[in-house]
Design a protein around this nucleic acid. Sequence first.
DNA 1: CTGTTAGCGCATTCAC
DNA 2: GTGAATGCGCTAACAG
Lengths: 344, 344
Amino acid sequence: MKRDSDGREQRAKIAPTISQVAKISGVSRATVSRAFTRPGMLSEETVRRVKAVADKLGYVPNQVARALSTGRHGNVALIVSDVANPFFPPLIRAAQLHADRAGLCVFLGNSDEDPAREELLLGRFIGQVEGLVLASSRLDEAQIRIYAARRPLVLINRDIEGITRVLIDTAPGVAAAIAHLAELGHRHIAYVSGPTTSWSNQQRRNAVRKEAAKRGLKVIAIPARPPSYDTGRLAAAPIVASGVTAAIAFDDLVAQGLLAGLAALDVDVPRSFSVVGCDDVLGETTYPQLTTVSARCADAGDVAVGLLLSQMSGGASGEIRHKLNSHLVVRASTGPAPAKRKSR
Amino acid sequence: MKRDSDGREQRAKIAPTISQVAKISGVSRATVSRAFTRPGMLSEETVRRVKAVADKLGYVPNQVARALSTGRHGNVALIVSDVANPFFPPLIRAAQLHADRAGLCVFLGNSDEDPAREELLLGRFIGQVEGLVLASSRLDEAQIRIYAARRPLVLINRDIEGITRVLIDTAPGVAAAIAHLAELGHRHIAYVSGPTTSWSNQQRRNAVRKEAAKRGLKVIAIPARPPSYDTGRLAAAPIVASGVTAAIAFDDLVAQGLLAGLAALDVDVPRSFSVVGCDDVLGETTYPQLTTVSARCADAGDVAVGLLLSQMSGGASGEIRHKLNSHLVVRASTGPAPAKRKSR
DNA sequence: CTGTTAGCGCATTCAC
DNA sequence: GTGAATGCGCTAACAG
């Protein structure tokens, strides 16, 4: 086919091809190709000459053509449920870094917690990546399996049998948080819950229930959906109305909102109410500084890409379920239960 | 060339090609191609039959091959200086959204404020995108021009003549902030400065100087580099030591750190010291809530992609310098100058 | 070391 | 409406 107005190069001057370089430098196209891909195979002299011509012409190998020929292009995709949630940026950063070191480019997708959008993105990516990682996917298990059958795929915080996944196991940290609250004398606490379809939420909720039961604490659930500063803030009223003396939130953002909501209600933290977050992504930037469950989200991104790489290179065919540990970080938002009820 | 172990499809079963679909459905490859790209050109019957076969085989057009043939693939790149800086996530999100609506996939690059890394990323992206946007680029002007010559490119918060750019003009907001502080009786203030090579920093710094001069305020500069919560926190000591009564920070993150540093020094904000941030990306999540210059960072991402699109489609060849406005948002971190010096 | 020969998978002129 | 032929730009066998 002949295309006059070449779409390949948006600029006025169209990109020179390997053939032109070959002709001018008086060698074959194969030689030009080699000069760029395996210079070691050629005499230094030829390499130098070819590269000189290439430079002069402004030639640079067409990566699309190369990809078609080799079947490899080194692109992967990362889809997250909400770029703006502070949980993700560190994860994205770590994933990028690892991918970079491996020479890969990464497509980023933001599903905004919407399964339909997530699938749209997936559809667009799947055909042009060598692998992908889905962080906090909200997609059907069936859908995920379909894509996983086409390309190496690793999940973060989603537990689907047969698919490689890295799970941030917040159960230990959450259990420690409950223990911490119990020791401080709290007997009634609230769990401020996140997205129903979130694996993390289910896991945290269960961990709260289990440990609370073990220690004889009563726990109620108050939703904050979608998880955000605002929904956390709004949860403050029903929480104080419920009479609990402490709350553990789905994530740090919700906890931070809760802190603000409590302040607005003139509830003093930690003197008359204790708050625990989850993820440890806000660091010490809240006021008061947040006691939280550290979740190592950056590691998750790093590990996920590592797993993806090994899967892409054919290795590690067996099912992998990588768990990341968590622990409690005690800061200033938790304190002894206020002396009213049966708080000791 | 013959490749046995096909790299194109990492899974066991290699992807079916247009030829197989053609053979099985008893039509030519051209027809199969048309069934996917311009079904209107074919009889409904044929389209149906071809698609049925394709489905059964799990055929899906190879996007790389298609890209090589058409010269278009719909990929763009976005490079930011620090994903983890709260300024960027909203910008990224907005850029993504706009790109999505246009059917484009976006590569994300994170330079971590390092020009070398930025160039590495650029080199990897440039050959496989139709356009790119550089947010807060730290690259040489010369380098940027080279890449801009190869592909449509738009800059965010970087002012290079001849290259399309969107600039968040914080000068008005900063001026308003200075006016605000002046009205509150402050006479000596500090500017907590960011990256030397940052256009935003230069712009803010100049705006501070100019407006301060106009109102007869004295201003000193204290660095916080790289701009972060921690460097902001560390700036607290030199700032109080300097005797100023208010500070305006390069960005919200630095301001938040400063807030924490001041609290640690037992300096009460806003009673004995006032703090102003910039960008308004922390919203009301700081304590005390931050008075800041709202910078509409999400709009920047949206507009940048819009400009890129029009540039990619050949239009808008003229130089565009899009300015985004800013304004002061007064919250709780600013108050009357403490009554000691000549604060009235 | 280097040239020749064949495709990679698809989209697109033409004819029919 | 549909098929046959051609080429996108590059890489990889195979000779020499």
